[in-house]
């Protein structure tokens, strides 16, 4: 059985990283999907264009929350330009314009969700919100 509920994903769902209070963030954006009730906020704090902190809070399905947690881990320490590039890679990967996962083993855990078109938006919700925080000048 090709379950999407792989160990890495479940670990991030049960033990979410960088989840909770967003008070100390410079920029916060909300991502919501009223169709399934997923509703999260993503915040960033940057110093010299480098992401010192990426956090999120909110409610959603396991895939949405695990994706947000994985995202936070994968983007802290990146420059904002690198983070935007990674978001674009994720969008391309889930939009099927590229078939290879971005070169990051943790992100690869989300790959199984690509088989389930209805859940792709759950994965991308946090990433699109992050993209918006990165775009604010």
């Amino acid at each position: 059985m090709n379950s999407v509920y792989k160990t890495v994903l479940l670990d991030h769902f049960h033990n979410p990283r960088n989840k909770g209070d967003l008070d100390s963030m410079d920029r916060v954006k909300r991502g919501s999907n009223p169709r399934c009730g997923d509703d999260i906020e993503v915040g960033i704090r940057a110093e010299n264009e480098i992401l010192e902190s990426v956090r999120f809070r909110g409610r959603g399905c396991s895939i949405c929350l695990a994706s947000a947690s994985i995202m936070s881990e994968c983007t802290i320490g990146l420059t904002m330009r690198q983070a935007r590039h990674l978001v674009q890679q994720m969008l391309d990967w889930f939009g099927d314009t590229i078939s290879e996962a971005p070169s990051n083993t943790t992100l690869a855990a989300l790959g199984a969700v690509r088989q389930h078109p209805a859940r792709k938006k759950c994965v991308l919700l946090a990433w699109v919100a992050l993209d918006e925080t990165l775009e604010i000048k």
């Binding site: 399934c36 396991s62 949405c64 859940r119």
Partner: peptide
């Protein structure tokens, strides 16, 4: 503590077809 989409997906993996969502009844 579990989103209904997760219930429906795991049920689906076990051959059980149920619906999850707002059922067009917001």
């Amino acid at each position: 503590g579990i989103h209904p989409h997760d219930i429906a997906q795991i049920a689906g993996e076990h051959g059980v077809a149920i619906r999850a969502g707002h059922h067009c009844c917001q």
